[in-house]
Structures are given as C-alpha cells and as structure tokens.
C-alpha cells in the first residue's frame, strides 16, 4: 500500500497569535512555525502502517512557500520516504489545496491519503473531505483507529456522543483525531538521514490548478476581551454569588 500524507506549515501551537494592527490578518513574521499537530499524527500513523508491513512507501506533500520544506523534512525524519513541495506564495484555501493534492495523486496513485482533521491556523476542518469529494473516494474523518481489513480499511471515528466504525473501500481518505496515536520525536540520526531524502518541487501551474481564493478576508479582529472577575474566599461565598448575584443556579 502506498501512502500520501499532506503536511501544513502553521504558526506553532504554543504561540499566542496577535492580530495585525491594520486588521488584515495575524502576525506571522518572526513567529515560530511548525507542522500542524494533526498532520504529525497523520505522519505517525503512516509510519506505523509501514512499520507493521501494511505500507510500502510514504510520500509527504506540502503546499505553500519554500519554507514548507522544513515541515516536509520533519515528516521525512519521522519516517516518510520522499517529499513533494508545491510552491506557492499567498493564500491557499482548502479547496485549492484539495485540487493540488488531487493532481499529485493522479501522478502518484496512492492507496490511502492520511490528513490532519483540521489545521490550527484557519480551523477550517475541510481539506480531507474536499479531497475525498474531488477524487470520488470514501472518507473516514476524525479517526481514532485505522486498520487494514478485508481488502479495504476499517476506521473508528470520533463522533458526537462516542465512536463509530466504518469499512471503506480503497483508495480512501482518512483524517486524524487526537487519540489516533502519539507522534514520535525524530531522532538525530533520522534527522541527518532525512536530509538526503529527495524533495521534488512543483508549482500549481505545473499541475494545471487554479488556486485563486474564493473567500476575501475583509478584516481580522481580536475577539472581545473577557474581564477577569473576582476571587471568592469560600465555597459558601461562591454559591451565594452564583445564586444571588449572577443568578445562574
């Protein structure tokens, strides 16, 4: 089984983002960037499938500026075999990314594509589902377990209220939820080895894809700030306030 894992470069999980003074977006200059955490889970799952002998090759793909090479290198250090960078400066919406990935998939013919369920920058939660639609493939979103079974894959999904299990035909799309696995840290020898693994660079035009955004960002603002309230001294005081001041119980 050949696996493809898209990875996104995003503002690091630990950075407190700031809205730009001109309200055009958030400050991303001189901010630590990392691989989207859900994509790390996707890479980890692919590497585990390969270690179990269920997969033969893992291709890590990223779309964005040249610097996305760093996130591809991280995926290679975790265990992916080679990388593809689709170089583009400017906004790439999930629909555009799905179209780019579809074009790469037409060339690479993977059996399974594993993506993060959502990127922690735009919080769209869309690329996997959109890619599945464009390819006409089944989707197993919010996966907490992925097992090759009966010529297809069995996916356990995190849904409202519990879990559900689906059997998908291959090729298929899986998007990862938090509990699927705990991604490994790349070891130093593997980081060194990853430097020698190949990364192919393409442009959207090479793939014949129009990536023009469909959404125009009119403004980006900070949400209204919540004021810190008061400390209460005792449980009695707390209950009294909730009953008589806030009137919520």
């Amino acid at each position: 089984m050949k696996l493809l894992v898209p990875v996104k470069r995003v503002v690091d999980y630990n950075v407190k983002v700031r809205v730009k003074a001109d309200h055009t977006g958030v400050e991303t200059a001189n901010v630590k960037m990392s691989m989207n955490p859900f994509d790390e889970i996707a890479v980890e799952e692919a590497v585990r499938l390969k270690e179990k002998g269920a997969a033969t090759e893992i291709i890590a793909v990223s779309a964005g500026p040249t610097a996305c090479q760093e996130q591809i290198r991280t995926a290679l250090a975790m265990g992916a075999d080679r990388g593809i960078l689709i170089e583009h400066d400017g906004i790439l919406e999930p629909l555009a990314v799905a179209k780019l990935l579809k074009a790469v998939i037409a060339k690479e013919s993977p059996d399974l594509v594993i993506l993060g369920k959502q990127a922690i920058d735009d919080d769209m939660n869309a690329t996997g589902q959109m890619l599945a639609a464009l390819l006409g493939w089944p989707q197993g979103t919010y996966a907490s377990k992925v097992e090759p079974a009966d010529g297809g894959i069995k996916v356990t999904r995190e849904v409202d209220g519990g879990l559900e299990r689906l059997q998908l035909k291959l090729p298929a799309i899986v998007t990862t939820d938090l509990r699927l696995n705990e991604p490994r840290y790349a070891s130093l020898p593997n980081i060194m080895k990853a430097r020698k693994k190949p990364i192919e660079t393409l442009k959207p035009a090479d793939l014949g894809v129009d990536v023009s955004p469909r959404l125009t960002v009119l403004k980006v603002e900070e949400p209204p700030k919540r004021q810190a309230g008061k400390k209460v001294g005792s449980v009695q005081e707390l209950v009294e306030k909730l009953r008589n001041e806030a009137k919520v119980i």
Binding site: L95, D123, G128, Q129, M130, L131, A132, A133, V159, D160
Partner: peptide
C-alpha cells in the same frame, strides 16, 4: 458544526466547486 455537519458539508462544497465556510 457538529461531527456530522463538519464531516459532510466540506464534501458537498467540493462537489459544487465552492469553498466551504466553516463554523
């Protein structure tokens, strides 16, 4: 924007060639 809605609406959007507007 429940687990069900978030699962299907982006798929629908791509089939219609539009960008989903989430959440």
């Amino acid at each position: 924007a429940s687990a069900a809605g978030k699962n299907v609406m982006p798929r629908l959007a791509a089939l219609l060639d539009v960008q989903v507007i989430s959440d």
